[in-house]
């Protein structure tokens, strides 16, 4: 068995700790130790974005990130966006616009867009398209994903539903 390392970090607003294999990816630990199955293993080499999470305010491919690097960080996953105040504006916009088909890319898309809008709530279409350049979707052709992102940005800026 490989060496295990004890790590503590903040996961979706709560302090957590776990002993994780030194070689495990953040994705594996989130899925298998914390039962957060929203982020997906799709390519395992950072080419598709389906495993995107937000770590200390930056979007990361969790499949490439060693789990031990989570130590001391603040981590958000798609599960953590749905809170007492309801769905996150990005999640709500995905639901409303029809940006979800098979949904396998959705967790990664939602996190990537949330990250882009956190940095710039006024991001326009071109900027948002670039933001999800590394997120592959085989169902939607990205049109409704971008529509959702623009609607979410408007809502986050206080513009209400477009």
């Amino acid at each position: 068995m490989s060496l295990e390392v004890e790590i503590a970090f903040t996961l979706n607003g709560r302090a957590v700790s776990a002993a994780v294999p030194a070689t495990a990816s953040a994705l594996t630990v989130l899925r298998e130790r914390f039962d957060l199955a929203g982020a997906k293993l799709v390519c395992g080499e950072g080419e598709c974005g389906a495993c995107t999470i937000i770590v200390d305010g930056l979007s990361r491919n969790s499949c490439l990130m060693p789990a031990v690097d989570l130590a001391g960080r603040t981590v958000r996953t798609v599960e953590g966006l749905w809170g007492e105040r309801g769905l996150d504006p990005v999640q709500q916009a995905f639901v409303d616009t029809g940006a979800v088909q098979c949904g396998y890319c959705t967790a990664g898309m939602v996190m990537q867009i949330r990250h882009a809008l956190d940095r710039n709530p006024a991001a326009g279409e071109a900027e948002l398209r670039r933001a999800i350049e590394g997120n592959v979707c085989r169902c939607t052709g990205y049109a409704k994903v971008i529509e959702a992102a623009l609607a979410a940005g408007q809502r986050m800026r206080g513009g209400g539903a477009p």
């Binding site: 769905l87 999640q91 639901v95 949904g103």
Partner: peptide, 20 residues
């Protein structure tokens, strides 16, 4: 424009796929 029935679960990571 009907909301896809399973979209809320998929957008929140609640859906468990066969791979999960």
């Amino acid at each position: 424009r009907a909301v896809k029935l399973d979209a809320p679960d998929k957008a929140t990571g609640r859906t468990r796929y066969i791979n999960d």
